[in-house]
Amino acid sequence: MTPFDYHAPKTLRSAMRLVQAFGDDAKVLAGGHSLIPSMKLRLAAPSVVIDLSGVAGLKRVTAGNETISIGALATHYAVESHRLLPSKCSLLPETAAEIGDAQVRNRGTVGGSIAHADPAADWPATMLALDAQFDIAGPDGERAVAASDFFVDLFITDLQPGEILTQIRIAVPAECSGGAYVKMRQSASGFALAGVAAQVTLDDAGNCASVAVGVTGVAPAAYRAHAVEDALVGQGIDAVADAAAHATDGVEEFQEDHHASGDYRAHLARVFTQRALSQAIDRAA
């Protein structure tokens, strides 16, 4: 790790000032579970580190009647262990529990993971499936971006220089909704070789009134599997298998390494889409 200056702002305002003052020389530190390892490997060598963990108000997870708010600095464990989330939106704690290991979940943050946008991270799939809104503070004030507009490419998001992700907002799913996250862990790192998050709401007939599917690990950025959703809306569980076959429609480039080929990841995306949707429908019923 190369030497750097360390700043631990207490307020978002001072954090913003630091971020803008140091520009590209600075890295923002959340839980540190992506940044610190890459600094140790000297893949990142910022001259300034701005630690957000002391910023007031960014760690809170609240589950209201209509909205779930997750502060960007909330840890994975805070989501995993939240008392109200299993009943309000089980997909969130289920995804959290699939990340890394207990120590990593204690320290790693939801916002850090989302902003880092590792192509194999778990949260992006779930955020897409829940149609999350990301609140971003920037030099020109606040803005909100939908998850579906946020994940752009390999480690690239809609987050602009000088901006900080502050909060994730998710609408509490309606009655008769269910979600599921299914992944295959890369056997060494635990990241997703493929991971699929599905959230459905059923109508009175037991058919899908709404379907959202997020896929991670497969393409350079996590994506919404719109073709699957379109094929399943208005249909029941019997249509899941056919719908899941569309899980990689429109994907032009697949992630590929010695752990898994693109073909295999695409296959897993289809299998897990089917499994996640079946479970989600099951839970919604």
Binding site: Q186, S187, A188, S189, D257, H258, H259
Partner: peptide, 24 residues
């Protein structure tokens, strides 16, 4: 049997050179 393999690529770089890529 199931997980471990040290892989060098064609340029002789070890692509399984950490616990991120070599599964114990």
């Amino acid at each position: 049997a199931l997980y471990e393999e040290a892989i060098y690529d064609e340029s002789g770089q070890m692509i399984t050179g950490s616990f991120m890529d070599y599964a114990l």
